[in-house]
Design a protein around this nucleic acid. Structure first.
Lengths: 218, 218
DNA sequence: ACCCGTATAGTCGAAACCGACTATAGGAGG
DNA sequence: CCTCCTATAGTCGGTTTCGACTATACGGGT
């Protein structure tokens, strides 16, 4: 029942609503605030999109123009505030995002789907480099985390860092394990050969040729 | 030096190249083939995007029209094949995708960034439901995996399922742990109060009010 | 012999997204 | 006091993405 289509799909809209719950702001300030709080690792903060998103939130009646200030002859600042509807919708959007896992398409998942094409040696090299880079990023993230917490920021406010760290570690470990398995032969590597001008896989010890579909054209 | 901008950003292009490496195909067939092989969990297969992507791959010279068949008076089928350039670029694209972790913005990460706004009870309920749903999805995925492997498909060809499973489990465990920590009080929950018409957090036992930025407006 | 649901194959316009650009203000340095 | 660099605030147009739509073929039931 709950999932009538939302008028704003861009997640940046969630951040906007979250900020406006604290106090009215103009879009530019939202952007800088999000960056100051390191929320730009969770949200894709692009100026262009931001103004678009704000506009559609207005159209939806979730936020409304609050005032328009002007300092000197600089562009005027359109300040927005949430509406009562916006406050409720923010909550229910948030709630649904937490409740409901969504199909997403991370780049690495796509790449792994064709890992076979790289050949075992190249695959191992690439996977090893990924684990190394992930390790650097993990160290980095742990440092920012420690830094932020030292400033008395409640842990709850940077809990997304813990999530990101956990997932990065899981990915690093997986990539490392698979690299190991390729090297020690645990993960069998069918031979890629070219026959009649096209590539086919020869699964040593299995069927001669791997075809997952019936021939369907003449 | 390797990262001159790629002419095709949509990852569906990677899938197209991968398929054409096997044999020439027309777009519609690519879509059905991807679905048959369960690769539509790794790639967002939308008809519209597919034809767009194919066109830009042609423009880039990575694939080329191979022939145009026609069966009866049905719309003609434009069959494409990879070029030599396309074969190389496929490899290097794949290689880079594996080597280089990218900043991505999963929905759950965004949601977790504002978890505090839900309040402890509602957050726990939502997190519990997520773990439950993830468990169902994990069971499902494990069944398809077992099913596919029973058909002698080499493990390498469905290795992305293992990755997806690992990540889903990591997320499930994290969500469960956080729900536990909220309930047993390990994860402190600052009080959300309304003061002067705006929401502020009161970190019990810490500073009176949590403000992460200097006041910057009058 | 005819009707209809599904499979085949692709087109097209609208929305979403983003990067490059405009323009003013303020402050540091020479 | 003039210049230049950065911060402030936002606009605009091109590209990407996608979902809804078109149109034919085929097979099975009645």
């Amino acid at each position: 029942m709950s999932t009538r289509k939302r008028p704003v799909s861009n997640l940046l809209g969630l951040a906007v609503l979250g900020l406006l719950l604290e106090r009215p702001m103009h879009p530019y300030e939202m952007a800088t605030t999000l960056r100051e709080r390191n929320k730009d690792t969770s949200f894709k903060v692009k100026t262009g999109s931001l103004y678009d998103v704000v506009e559609s939130l207005v159209r939806a009646g979730w936020i409304a123009e609050h005032s328009t200030e002007r300092a000197g002859r600089r562009p005027e600042r359109r300040v927005y505030a949430h509406t009562e509807l916006g406050r409720k919708e923010f909550m229910s959007w948030l709630d649904e995002l937490v409740r409901t896992p969504a199909r997403e398409y991370p780049r690495f998942l796509a790449a792994v789907s064709y890992l076979g094409a790289l050949g075992p040696e190249r695959a191992v090299r690439a996977l090893r480099e990924r684990t190394a880079r992930l390790n650097e990023e993990i160290d980095q993230a742990r440092q920012t985390q420690a830094e932020v917490l030292r400033h008395q920021t409640p842990r709850l406010f940077v809990i997304e860092l813990e999530y990101a760290l956990t997932m990065a570690e899981a990915e690093r470990d997986w990539a490392g394990r698979i690299a190991d398995e390729i090297q020690d032969g645990t993960l069998a590597w069918p031979e890629l050969t070219t026959r009649q001008g096209r590539q086919v896989w020869t699964d040593q010890g299995g069927r001669e040729e791997h075809e997952e579909h019936e021939g369907r054209q003449a």
